[in-house]
Write a protein that binds this DNA or RNA. Sequence first.
DNA 1: GCCGTTTTCGGCCCGACTGTTTTCAGTCG
Length: 580
Amino acid sequence: MFVKNAMPIPNSDIADMLNQTADLLEIQDENPFRVRAYRNASRTVRNLSGNAAEMIAEGTDLTEYQGIGKDLAGKIGQIVETGAFDVLTSLRQQIPGELDKLMHISGLGAKRVARLYKELDITNLEQLKQAVDSGRIRDVEGFGKKTEDNIREEIGRLMGADQKRLKIAVVEDLAAPLVAYLKKGEGVKQVTVAGSFRRRKDTVGDLDILVTCKKHSNIMDHFTRYEDVQKIVSKGATRSTVLLRSNFQVDVRVMQDANYGAALMYFTGSKEHNIAVRKIGLQKKLKLNEYGLFRGEKRVAGRTESEVYARIGLPYIEPELRENRGEVEAAQANRLPKLVKLTDIKGDLHVHTNYTDGHNSIREMAEAAKALGYSYVAITDHSQHLTIAGGLQPDALRKQMEEIEAIDQSLRGITLLKGTEVDILENGTLDWPSDLLADLDVRVCSIHHQFTLSKEQQTTRILKAMDNPYFNILGHPTGRLIQDRQAYAVDMERIMKAAAERGCLLEVNAHSDRLDLNDIHCKMAAELGVTVVISTDSHRTSHLENMRLGVGQARRGWLEAGNVANTRTLGELRKLLKPR
DNA sequence: GCCGTTTTCGGCCCGACTGTTTTCAGTCG
């Protein structure tokens, strides 16, 4: 049985085990639909808003979820109870080494990995490298010189430093000049970045770019001549793939304007969303592909995405929702959220200045916020405990508050709020005395040390801090740094329930390294009735524009303007920030 | 292994590109 005090197994671990099972079954040439069933269940578990182990303990029947039937629900139960999965264990005994890892080499799938094992006894990357170097690979049926070269290159890439997915802000910087370049191609009409970039995922694995242009364009030649191209992986009339010098992959697909909507849907994905939508189409005898929506041979839609969705009988689904996390069902029931937009945001509530570790002055940050059209901005520098970031002493904070008031008097069209980013100390107290907290307008409360406390201790620490009547906003609630630092262990559901009860707000930190809360947590917040604040944690004026990244995550988490405190007018906002 | 306005069996999204092939399997998205 699930022991209450033991750390429950995270959803990601369960999902990984199911996915590894799928890989190994595929290597065994199992029924491909059984393989797919494991992959689907893996994805469903990964996307659950609650912890599967806790849900099971509370009596939730996992078969309610898409892709989990009686059998897999039982198997997930076993994983949760024992921490192990006998199907996977037995497969690992039958299949030696790291064959499933070899599958993740681009160009090698289950079939070829199995063949390499059967014929050359290759079970790991090192053996594969030796087989390539000695030329034995070429003797295997279906493997030729080109394949050998490809594998050699891929191994080199894998053994070198590679982090394939990049943070979305980094990808924005790669995409902008490439899009500008493509637009200069002969006969080019539209250039749109699709894929996970358009869905605003926090990291992006490759760029999918859709180009529409006149017939007989030489756009693919133009594309592959782009100066940052390191290698042309494939090049065809309608689709080409290259690697940039940074090893980042870019796919370009060429379409005619009449197909634009269908193609954009197709290339935006997610794959799982597209499959779900196509299934609904099939029920109505409609076939959907990147060239349009067809009834038999007849094309019935395709020019715009809205047209395609409408013809299938669905309202338009925003790209950020297209993860098959319930949006298709919500669309069928006409219960899609009306997502928050960047233009709904009326102010930024987490901004640093050169009083602590920011680069710009109070006035410069305020002017920059005003230029974005905001009606308020809060200055929230660090508290005394955070010496490494030049945390303020109480008298320095008093002096800053006076300066904020003075500058506020001199500004028109924007209100400057006196704020703080106050440390939550290890015992759950805040790093300022109550009399100081009382004189501030906004208190962002954050954890900046002792990341390694147990889940129970960390959760208790935060809950205790929330007992403070001046606690407004939990800053970067999990402390994760994308691809750099794991989230610290917290019971997010308990924290959110407590926040909802007490009127505390949770931050969606829009800094490109954080995006914390993440998308799944945002959705959980909406479900639990927690109001969030989307803030940039700016340390220089240019960071204020990161708001778009935070809004992207909020949209991926199904948040509406009503779920977001800083879409409200200053008067309404102040009510939420009053001490309790 | 899942699922059901095609409903408890018999389906399961669909097409492009490559490489190794002489007509297509494997891989990818």
